[in-house]
Simulated assay, not measured.
Amino acid sequence: MKSEQIQTLHPHEGKTNKRISLEKYLIVKENILSILSEAQLTHTELMERLYENIKDTFEGGIQWYGETVKLDLEARAIIERTGSKPEKYRLLKDIQE
């Protein structure tokens, strides 16, 4: 039986993102939000922390899923880039919602 899928969004108009496993999406999303609830991080820092958090239990390309879900969260205005140098990511919405 095929797993349930989610169509992810892309923050740049005209670009489309991927359909991925809802189960994998939720794992990566939960971890990204948890990581960003503690600190604003650069892209590299965020992806390294995500990898460390799920490398022992996640099946698939963590960097690829991380990037796909990060873009989706940006498109949904849940996280944003700070615009600083170096650019960092931060939560826009309270993750307790």
Rank of each mutant, 00 (worst) to 15 (best):
L73T: 03
G61D: 11
E80F: 08
E13T: 14
T57N: 14
E87K: 13
V69F: 10
E30K: 14
A39M: 10
L71R: 11
L92M: 09
I79R: 04
D72M: 03
E13L: 13
P86F: 13
M1E: 14
K70Y: 04
G61R: 05
E52N: 15
I27E: 04
S84F: 12
I79G: 00
Q40M: 15
T8D: 03
L92N: 05
L46K: 01
L22M: 09
D56Q: 11
A75Q: 09
E45W: 00
I78E: 09
P86Y: 12
F58T: 08
L73A: 01
G14R: 11
L22G: 02
E30P: 15
L36T: 01
G60N: 07
G66R: 00
T42L: 05
G66K: 00
V69Q: 02
Y25V: 00
E23I: 12
G14K: 07
E59M: 09
L91H: 02
L41V: 06
P11G: 00
I95G: 02
E67W: 02
I35S: 03
L41F: 06
E23M: 08
P11V: 01
E13S: 08
L92Y: 10
H12G: 04
E38V: 12
R19C: 15
E97A: 08
V69S: 01
S3E: 08
Y89G: 02
R49W: 01
V69W: 00
E48Q: 09
K29M: 04
K24G: 03
Y51H: 10
K85F: 11
E80P: 01
T82M: 11
A77L: 14
E52I: 15
E52D: 10
K24Q: 10
T42K: 04
T42V: 07
I79Q: 02
T44P: 09
K55I: 14
H43F: 08
Q5N: 10
I54L: 13
E48M: 12
L9N: 13
K24H: 12
E80I: 09
V69T: 03
S3V: 12
R90N: 01
I95Q: 07
S37M: 11
L36D: 03
R81F: 05
L71P: 01
G60V: 08
K85I: 15
T68S: 05
I62K: 00
L46C: 05
D72S: 02
Q7P: 15
S37P: 04
L36K: 01
I6T: 04
